[in-house]
């Protein structure tokens, strides 16, 4: 599944995920965090998501399971999972040891430590997914300059990640 299809299918479901999470966790920050966790988990299995007939029900189930995990981790009381709560379809949606929130944090930390201009370029490239031309327009730099900066920064981030993992 490409990024475009992934976004088209799952991005608009974020309010549903959040509402379930806030209902179960009763904590705004935890609900936001869980919503992000759901997307990281979905992304890790995005090649298998084509098999999902009903993405809406699927994300609700994933959200429910992640909320239960979070509550258990925090040793909070919750009534036992009801028996009529369907299990997730077996599509191998499991935690990815490499593509997880920690890896993303390292990437963002690395960008935040960059000099001002380089950081500005990389934030536009990574988080906004803008192309070289658009970044050049917004920053007032030449396209070649942006391209070189992105290439150098990519190598820098890659190297830091390799040292960590």
């Amino acid at each position: 599944m490409t990024t475009e299809i992934f976004k088209r299918t799952y991005l608009s479901l974020n309010p549903l995920i959040y509402r379930v999470a806030i209902h179960l966790l009763n904590d705004e920050e935890a609900a936001k965090d869980t919503t992000q966790d759901v997307y990281v988990k979905l992304w890790a299995s995005k090649d298998k998501l084509d098999k999902i007939d009903d993405p809406k029900s699927f994300v609700i189930k994933v959200t429910h399971n992640l909320c239960i995990d979070r509550i258990r981790r925090n040793n909070l009381r919750i009534e036992e999972r009801p028996s009529d709560m369907e299990e997730l379809p077996n599509i191998g949606i499991e935690d990815n040891p490499v593509m997880n929130r920690d890896t993303l944090r390292h990437v963002v930390d690395c960008i935040n430590r960059m000099p001002k201009k380089q950081k500005e370029i990389m934030l536009l490239f990574v988080t906004e997914a803008l192309d070289y031309k658009e970044i050049a327009k917004r920053t007032g730099l030449t396209e070649l300059n942006v391209r070189v900066t992105v290439s150098r920064s990519r190598n820098q981030i890659k190297k830091e990640l390799e040292e960590l993992i």
Partner: peptide, 15 residues
């Protein structure tokens, strides 16, 4: 929230 998730997906794709 939607913007945050969009940013998250872009960062996932980049990584």
């Amino acid at each position: 929230l939607e913007h945050d998730i969009d940013t998250l997906i872009n960062t996932l794709a980049f990584t």
